[in-house]
């Protein structure tokens, strides 16, 4: 039974997506999604997907975002666990 609970918790944690403050940080700088996308060298759709939690950025992209906003990654992204 305990094994089953552990498995369920693992599966649930796998389904959790990152939350992030990208939309807020972007708004503070009055950037459009497209403007942010150019600075990150990705498409506007990618920025939209990250903001809405549909896509979790890779570590290299997360670092690019972190450098761009001059903030540590954990201040921009946090998991829901």
């Amino acid at each position: 039974m305990r094994q089953v609970d552990t498995t369920i918790r693992f599966l649930q944690s796998e389904q959790l997506t990152m939350k992030n403050r990208l939309k807020v940080l972007r708004a503070e700088r009055d950037w459009s999604q497209a403007e942010l996308a150019v600075q990150l060298d990705v498409s506007r759709q990618a920025v939209n997907a990250i903001e809405t939690g549909k896509h979790d950025p890779s570590l290299p992209l997360a670092f690019r975002i972190s450098r761009l906003f001059e903030m540590p990654i954990e201040e921009i992204f946090h998991d829901q666990a």
Binding site: S32, A34, E35, A37, V38, D41, V42, S43, R44
Partner: peptide, 11 residues
């Protein structure tokens, strides 16, 4: 219209 909106070179 995305007119006027910039695009990354890779796009």
């Amino acid at each position: 219209a995305e007119s006027g909106e910039p695009e990354a070179p890779r796009v």
